[in-house]
Write a protein that binds this DNA or RNA. Structure first.
Lengths: 217, 217
DNA sequence: CATTTAATAAAACATTGTTAAATATAGGAA
DNA sequence: TTCCTATATTTAACAATGTTTTATTAAATG
């Protein structure tokens, strides 16, 4: 009944985010509801809208936090390896492990559909770009190549690891799924890097603008 | 009113599926609702449950049809190419084009969460496996390798192309996005295949069971 | 102590998926 | 033809949802 000032707006926001995260971690996004979050933090549903514009914004914030956690995990994974190839493999492995440990929150990053897609893209796109940059840094350390090629290779490689995760790690991943994902990631990264190193990229002309693509041989 | 027997159960089912598909194609999954589908085919909402157990089943069926269409597109793409490398590139390009042309229906295959996940996996998993098999066939034509390696490589490669699509082709893809996706796909496939061809796989021992992974050098 | 102000709750609304009940029509029987 | 019954179809009802509006209550202020 209106215990004013018991928690600051920022505290409520934080409590709500944490409560929502546990709900999602346990029951998935489908199990999330405004009322459930509200009662979990000892408030009623209306109070949530005092802190968040709507549920989309709450999910958006959680996705941001998840991406931050992921980034920290990736950075951490780089601490144990010295050579670029090993670092790239470690990044892939770390990503897959994170996805397997928090499958619901991880999938929500990509599956959630906010009403206005634009704000999301602007808000969290940068947090995704950071991952590409980590890969770019390793690729640069691997061999001197034009910036453009590095950017393209990093994006191709990281998207691929994500694709392996998306196709292999379900919402309730079994140990064998995760193991297969690791195999695939190692297989992919290893062969891609080998191919990259044996290709003289400067000879290859790709003219995709007019849809006439000259594939490298 | 009850105009009994005007349409057979099967006809209503077909009409509902088509109506739902157009709704999804236009407004995305978020725009889909039981009542909207029902009125679109000139019936009321109750009649839908005479044909489908619930909305999940309807979506499941649509996903199945989408996967069938995709498979047909992939098969078609193989008609224009003769050499395995070109075929693999063509498969990737065809997949990206399909995703770009039907972004909502394509994403729904992966984003939809039915209440009981098991039926879906059993139902449509096979339709996804077919895609891997197409890739396997091309890889076999490329070089003689143990079945196990082929299966792994096909899965790695196709997951990667899917990852590129997932990360690059949004729900409302711009032409430049699609073009970038094509570049990434070509880049990825080319380098991966090059790497695959220059690697003597028989030397590589992967023992991931105990988590001690011996990376290929 | 009285008054304002803002935090919180409570209630109301529209919309959703789904189910149960009501209704009307087609096809056969008398 | 006329009634009857089975069932296709509609209508109504239910519970749950996100969101908005209104009402209340406690703190701050004078």
């Amino acid at each position: 009944m209106g215990r004013r000032g018991e928690h600051s707006k920022l505290e409520i926001e934080c409590m709500a985010l944490e409560a929502a995260e546990t709900i999602i971690e346990n029951e998935g996004y489908a199990g999330l509801s405004a009322r459930k979050v509200a009662t979990a933090i000892g408030y009623t549903v209306g109070s949530l809208y005092f802190v968040f514009r709507n549920l989309d914004e709450l999910v958006l914030r959680i996705n941001g936090r998840t991406l931050d956690q992921l980034y920290a995990v990736l950075i951490n994974a780089l601490a144990d390896c010295r050579y670029p190839q090993r670092c790239l493999l470690a990044l892939g492995t770390a990503y897959l492990d994170f996805a397997a440990q928090h499958p619901h929150r991880w999938r929500m990053i990509f599956e959630h559909r906010p009403r206005d897609e634009e704000t999301l893209t602007e808000m969290n796109k940068e947090k995704m770009e950071r991952c590409y940059e980590l890969v770019e840094k390793q690729l640069k350390a691997l061999a001197a190549r034009p910036e453009e090629e590095i950017v393209l290779a990093a994006r191709a490689l990281w998207s691929s690891v994500h694709g392996i995760a998306a196709m292999t790690i379900t919402r309730n991943p079994h140990a064998e799924d995760v193991q297969l994902a690791h195999q695939l990631s190692i297989n992919l990264i290893t062969h891609y890097l080998t191919g990259l190193s044996t290709t003289d990229f400067s000879n290859v002309i790709m003219q995709t603008a007019g849809r006439a693509v000259d594939y490298p041989k």
